[in-house]
């Protein structure tokens, strides 16, 4: 594993913050290199990407009701992800490789009026 961490700013909104200690903005440092299979050190390594970050957030920051955040190894449908203010669908979604200083925003669209 690489010793250098990647520092990120992670934000939750649209109601998702309720699952993360009711705190919208978090500073997170993740390893620069991680196993391809989450939590399986025997699998080959890869640079940390958003797919890893989602698992990492689940295990390190999420406080309750995981089913409202994740489904089938990714975010639950209805959660928008932005990478430095750009729709992650334009950035390779889970395969986007995290860079120092990136701002990742998760917004739930599921909360009503």
């Amino acid at each position: 594993m690489s010793e250098s961490n990647v520092s990120l700013k992670v934000e939750f909104s649209g109601g998702l913050e309720l699952l993360f200690s009711n705190q919208r903005s978090h500073k997170v440092a993740v390893p620069g290199t991680v196993p391809t299979k989450y939590n399986d050190p025997s699998s080959p390594s890869k640079p940390a990407d958003i797919a890893f970050l989602i698992h990492y957030l689940r295990d390190n920051l999420l406080k309750e009701r995981v089913e409202l955040f994740m489904e089938n190894d990714t975010v639950r449908p209805g959660i928008l992800v932005l990478v430095n203010d750009t729709d992650w669908e334009l950035e390779g979604e889970g395969q986007y490789v995290l860079k120092e200083g990136d701002e990742i925003v998760f917004i739930s669209t599921l909360h009503g009026g």
């Binding site: 649209g14 109601g15 309720l18 928008l80 932005l82 729709d87 925003v105 739930s108 669209t109 909360h111």
Partner: peptide, 16 residues
């Protein structure tokens, strides 16, 4: 709707 509110920084309430 959500992207519009986000980019425009609109003040809205989101609780179930």
């Amino acid at each position: 709707i959500v992207m519009y509110a986000y980019f425009k920084k609109l003040d809205y309430f989101s609780t179930e």
